[in-house]
Write a protein that binds this DNA or RNA. Structure first.
Lengths: 353, 353
DNA sequence: CAATTTATGGCAACCGGTTGACAAAACTAG
DNA sequence: CTAGTTTTGTCAACCGGTTGCCATAAATTG
């Protein structure tokens, strides 16, 4: 009993039931190999290298695997290969509906391509974001950053380690997926011009937001083209509350139409204006950005420049996965179309009686 | 050069830079051990078993680790221990706002306790859900099922493998976190009764939803107690569209107040009624469930029975983590309070002129 | 100060796969 | 029927940690 064990003389036992929390565990390739009567490495090849093993042995092994209900241990596989079949998605704020569709798009693509999605949140803080990113880097094959708050250099540093795809922002040298504001904004401004508006206000988002600047540029350009006056206002934070707080400035600006950095701001602004007895759209037209969940719950429903967020999430995931499989461009921007969703919050200004 | 390598005579090189996608990689405990002048196992102990090594060596190792910028490889650690520091969360539908807060609650708790959250979606299908669950099981230490659609036996089977916590449903023998409908519903019904309503309709959710039944029971009980008549209606799906479709039946039912299985149904119903020229709450009062994001965007804002969803997510995660650390009860239900959020969609019926 | 206990670090096996090198077997061609 | 190829399976090392066992060093005790 106390003699040194002889590792070769494996007892012809059934599948090993060893570790695991309470004595139950799953079969290993060694178990499969024993049942199939081949070497473990053959099992490994049969299961991951199609064609490397003869059809007969393949069948033998597959049957054995099925019988034992074998499942690969992802960790054991990850160790030598470094591949985890997992990618990370970092969003600024999980409760911000802008990200819902992005998350879903990425999640769906992940599952479709047999990857697992790991989700992390940065709470709108560049520092937290960087920590989360570094943390995830250890466990995933690649990373998607949605509306990242950290600076370009940090993003590029991450991208040097593993494939990174950025959503809603352009970073030189890193693959990006960005909604092209042009089309949607010109449609919006054209619609406003057609309704007789002459002065348009843009309520900006956080100063760190790359996208907010693009939108402001888009608004300016479109207004110039349509010969409308444009004015820029600031917001404290890109939320419903932040929108409420801008109501005073909006009124003071003298603009009859407002585009806001995002739908949340638009909704807050609209509610506050309505509470102050100002009719939307009769006195002021409001146009949001993104077309988030709930944008049509309001009265009137919100006119908004839709960004295909789900598409962005899915596109970024596809791009990342392609990169991981050695396909696709290692940099450059994929741009997706935006479009105006005309609902009730914008229209012709009714002359004051 | 071609002689067999001598693994012992390790050259006194710097930190090994080997695999990795493109030649860069991180330090291992062996690198740390070499720099600190101790054995790798000592490094391992210093880093995971506090107090197992002397303070001097500890310091030595920590310095070396810091210098090399060492980070444990989670996979290498997971292999022998079986611990992954990761848990999974499966939700029925990522775009359903009910889950947003649950996700966030779980995510926050995970990060706080140094765990990673893996997210999966079942697309409302029991089969997909089971597949996703099995898939995740291999990679995580435990699982949270939010509003699971699969049957009790399958859940119990999963729970036999690894710790599982269920949200929004009670399963015998499995730890659950469930909002207690009682308080919120009685407040709602009492408020309706006080406003003179006499017949209350309940629009049910999917037949597989355990929670829908609990809510119906709660409504009946509260109505009985308040001596109101209650009637149950069915919905096709628990969405805004589904809500729209129930408008006809609601009107036909003769009820002046409606509680719906969730807020989405309530919003759809309200919009459809309003479109048909029925005033809310003047002609019909509407009360939803959950208090999801956007419930107050409507006009009038939605009265609803709030479930503390974030709390549920956080509570479930806490419970799971406790379980994983050998603390806490292995079964039993944790119930969280619901409360009425009185907004504009409910009130006194205005007599028809 | 010797004897005993306790604290500390090293050795080596192990977790469950992957993979390069190589030998045996099967097949092809001359 | 044999030499030359190609296919197929085996061996053994390796990925980067963890951990039981043991020897030694240090601390405690009589």
């Amino acid at each position: 009993m106390t003699e040194p064990k002889t590792p070769d003389a494996a007892p012809p036992a059934g599948p090993s039931k060893k570790h695991g929390r309470d004595g139950k565990s799953s079969a290993t390739i060694y178990d499969v190999a024993r049942v199939a009567g081949v070497n473990a490495s053959t099992v490994s090849r049969a299961l991951s290298k199609p064609g490397r093993v003869s059809p007969k042995t393949q069948k033998l092994i597959e049957d054995a695997a099925a019988e034992l209900n074998y499942q690969v241990n992802p960790f054991a596989r990850a160790l030598p290969t470094g591949k985890t079949n997992t990618f990370g998605l970092i969003v600024a704020d999980i409760t911000n509906p802008t990200f819902f569709d992005i998350i879903r798009g990425a999640q769906t693509t992940a599952t479709d391509r047999d990857y697992t999605l790991v989700l992390a949140e940065s709470a709108e803080s560049p520092a937290t974001e960087l920590i989360a990113a570094r943390r995830l880097m250890a466990t995933v094959d690649g990373l998607i950053l949605a509306s990242p708050r950290m600076d370009d250099d940090n993003i590029r540093a991450l991208a040097r380690d593993k494939p990174v795809v950025v959503i809603n922002r352009e970073v030189e040298g890193v693959p990006c997926v960005v909604p092209d504001v042009h089309k949607g904004i010109s449609e919006a401004v054209r619609s406003l011009a057609a309704n007789g508006h002459q002065k348009v206000a843009y309520v900006a988002g956080p100063p760190e937001s790359w996208m907010s600047e693009r939108r402001w540029e888009g608004v300016q350009a479109a207004c110039d083209w349509a010969r409308l006056e444009s004015v820029r206002l600031e917001s404290s934070k890109p939320t419903v509350d932040g929108g409420r707080q801008t109501a005073r400035e909006v009124r003071a600006s003298g603009a009859t139409a407002v585009l806001t950095y995002n739908d949340l701001l638009a909704i807050g602004l609209m509610r506050e204006l309505q509470a102050a007895g100002i009719a939307v759209p009769d006195q002021i037209s409001i146009v949001g950005f993104d077309d988030i969940f709930g944008a049509d719950f309001t009265t009137p429903p919100l006119t908004t420049v839709r960004s295909p967020l789900g598409e962005c999430g899915a596109g970024a995931a596809t791009r990342l996965l392609d990169l991981l499989h050695g396909r696709g461009e290692p940099a450059g921007t994929l741009s997706v179309e935006t479009e105006l969703v005309l609902r009730g919050s914008s229209g012709r200004t009714v002359p004051v009686r």
